[in-house]
Design a protein around this nucleic acid. Structure first.
Length: 109
DNA sequence: AACCTGACTCGCC
DNA sequence: AGGCGAGCCAGGT
């Protein structure tokens, strides 16, 4: 069993190009959804720049973190758009189509 | 060595 | 419907 950070990194690295995942998704993949906070911290730490596509990790709403300081929030959106990720707004990703295996709205009810 | 804080998310009041 | 607290882990002071 690897450290939580390791699992988080693995999960993030598993995100395919053209798709995004929410912190909760990554956290869930890492073991617990509550780890979302740790996920944010792990990415903030960004111990493996270039290896971990932190820009593919967004809020559950699909909105990018305002504190995305890995090069500027704009930078993240730009990169995602280049990868083929659809956007609803300038800072909101279309989770309905680009989120990695996000729940198919079964929770709608 | 202990406490506080931090890129989150969900549940309860 | 909106606000607040709880749960997780690691790093810094």
């Amino acid at each position: 069993m690897k450290n939580t950070f390791e699992r988080i990194y693995e999960a993030v690295k598993l995100i395919p190009p053209g798709s995004v995942a929410s912190y909760g998704q990554v956290a869930e993949a890492a073991g617990n959804r509550r780890l979302a906070r740790v996920v944010g911290y792990a990415l903030h730490s960004n111990p493996a720049p270039g290896i971990i596509p932190c820009h593919r990790v967004v809020m559950k709403d699909g909105s990018v973190s305002p504190a995305f300081a890995f090069g500027g929030a704009n930078r993240q959106v730009e990169l995602l758009q280049k990868e083929g990720v659809l956007f609803r707004d300038e800072t909101h990703v279309d989770m309905a189509q680009c989120c990695v295996r996000c729940l198919p709205l079964v929770d709608m009810q």
